[in-house]
Computed example of a mutant assay.
Amino acid sequence: MLQLPDAELHAKAVELGIITKDQDLPPSQRSRVAAVLLADRRAAEQPQAPAAPKCAREITVRGSEITVDGKPFPWLVARAPMEIGLNPDGSGTVRITLLADAVQILTPQPTTESE
């Protein structure tokens, strides 16, 4: 059986508003607080769904320096020609070549109609 430290149980009980910082956790509430702590741990261990892709607000290319929305692009870019497309409204696209130690291409899992 998993043992939870008293200090952790006490802190969670205060956070939940069951007791104040100066009170002791009643034995009748220990299992309730322990269940919340365990549920929090399980939720933290679950893989998070990737964030939905979003359109960059601004891409700046200055020599070999590339910034996306003011942040340095974190990957190495190959010394290959870039393709830059600009639209009259100022929007556009940038096609670059990323360097990688390995590349893996996976087929998406088929989805059923009930999903």
Rank of each mutant, 00 (worst) to 15 (best):
F73I: 01
A39L: 15
R41K: 14
R32F: 14
L98N: 03
R32Q: 15
P53M: 13
R95I: 06
E8D: 08
E58D: 06
V103H: 07
E83N: 13
T111C: 08
S31V: 10
P72C: 04
K54S: 14
D101S: 12
W75C: 05
P88L: 02
Q3G: 07
G90A: 08
Q46M: 09
D6R: 08
H10G: 03
S114T: 12
S64C: 03
Q23S: 11
V36P: 01
G63L: 05
S31F: 09
V61R: 10
T93A: 13
A102C: 02
P47I: 00
G17V: 06
V94I: 15
L16D: 06
D101P: 01
R79D: 07
Q109K: 13
I84R: 08
Q104Y: 14
T112D: 12
R32G: 12
T93E: 13
K54C: 07
A13Q: 08
T20D: 11
V77P: 02
I59V: 15
T20H: 05
L4F: 08
I19E: 02
P53D: 10
E45G: 04
A49W: 02
P81T: 05
Q23W: 10
L99K: 02
P81E: 09
Q48L: 09
V77E: 09
D40S: 13
V36M: 12
V14I: 06
A43V: 04
R57F: 11
Q46V: 05
D101W: 02
G92K: 06
A80Y: 04
A102F: 04
I84K: 07
P108L: 14
C55W: 09
Q3P: 04
V103Q: 12
A39I: 09
A100R: 03
R30V: 08
V33T: 08
A78Q: 05
L86A: 04
A100K: 01
R30L: 07
R57I: 14
P88H: 01
T60D: 10
